[in-house]
């Protein structure tokens, strides 16, 4: 690991100021991706600004048909939260399968979504539930947030503060884990908002996206058969030693079909 300055600000304003002053600053959230990256010497920030001391980034609230989760909420907290398990069980279940238990005890929602790893789980929920992402300056619709491989709508210095997840009538998430890393080779979240269907897909492409063909088919007929009838094109999908693009396309359909099955099974 290269040398860096470490800061743990107590307020957003302080964090943003530190970022502005740093030559090449990086925000540190749970650190479960960033610290291994630093250890491999793949990043060399001048300053690390640890967000863990900022109370404004924490907390879980359910109100107005929306689950509001502070960006510095750890995966394990989301998975265990009685409020989330009651109001939006799909989110708790998804969080309960990110990484492993030790990672979930450190990793945070904001860290994961800001990093936008193509194989992360949370992006499927952000997209699939049509979340709204808040920063210190603005709010961003899920559909506008993920842009490309590790690229989001966040501008330098911008901090995710909170994500609001609308509560659907019913939803399910299915993940096909990479056998080695346990990241998602493909993850699909299917949500039904009073007949309006959203399907968020992670793992398959450079960043999370909506599978609109699946959404339309499911809006017509909410059934595994409807999923099966849809051609999932592999163009633009990731291809690596664990899964070709073609295989990923198959997995998108299979995971979607199973998510629908889970929903119908209640």
């Amino acid at each position: 690991m290269y040398q860096f300055n470490y800061h743990r600000p107590a307020t957003m304003a302080e964090a943003v100021a530190l970022y502005g002053e740093a030559e090449d600053g990086l925000y540190l959230s749970g650190g479960q991706t960033l610290i291994p990256t630093l250890k491999q010497r793949l990043a060399a920030p001048s300053d690390l600004i640890d967000l863990s001391g900022i109370d404004a980034l924490k907390g879980i609230k359910v109100e107005d048909g929306v689950v509001r989760v502070g960006a510095f909420t750890r995966h394990a907290e989301v998975a265990r939260s009685p409020e989330i398990r009651k109001a939006l069980p799909v989110l708790a279940a998804l969080a309960g399968h990110i990484g492993d238990a030790q990672v979930r005890n450190m990793g945070t929602l904001g860290g994961s979504v800001a990093n936008s790893d193509p194989a992360a789980d949370y992006p499927a929920a952000v997209i699939g539930l049509g979340a709204t992402l808040y920063t210190q300056d603005r709010d961003i619709a899920a559909d506008d947030y993920f842009q490309d491989l590790f690229e989001t709508a966040l501008t330098p210095g911008e901090i995710l503060t909170r994500i609001d997840f609308p509560i659907p009538d019913r939803a399910a998430y299915r993940k096909f884990p990479n056998p080695a890393s346990r990241y998602a080779v493909v993850g699909v979240l299917v949500a039904d908002f009073d007949g309006t269907i959203r399907v968020g897909v992670t793992g398959a492409g450079p960043c999370a996206f909506r599978a609109t063909a699946l959404e339309e088919a499911l809006a017509r007929s909410f059934s595994p058969d409807a999923v099966r009838s849809v051609e999932v094109p592999e163009a633009g999908f990731n291809s690596d030693l664990h899964a070709s693009a073609e295989y990923r396309a198959n997995l998108v359909r299979v995971m979607a079909e199973r998510a629908v099955g889970d929903i119908l099974a209640g």
Partner: peptide, 28 residues
């Protein structure tokens, strides 16, 4: 060195974490 093996697991304020993926400042 990629935070997967878990041999470094300790309890931080009562919860299991991987001590290879925590910085000094985070445990102050």
């Amino acid at each position: 060195d990629t935070s997967q093996c878990g041999a470094c697991t300790v309890h931080l304020d009562g919860r299991a974490v991987k001590s290879c993926s925590m910085l000094a400042g985070q445990v102050d």
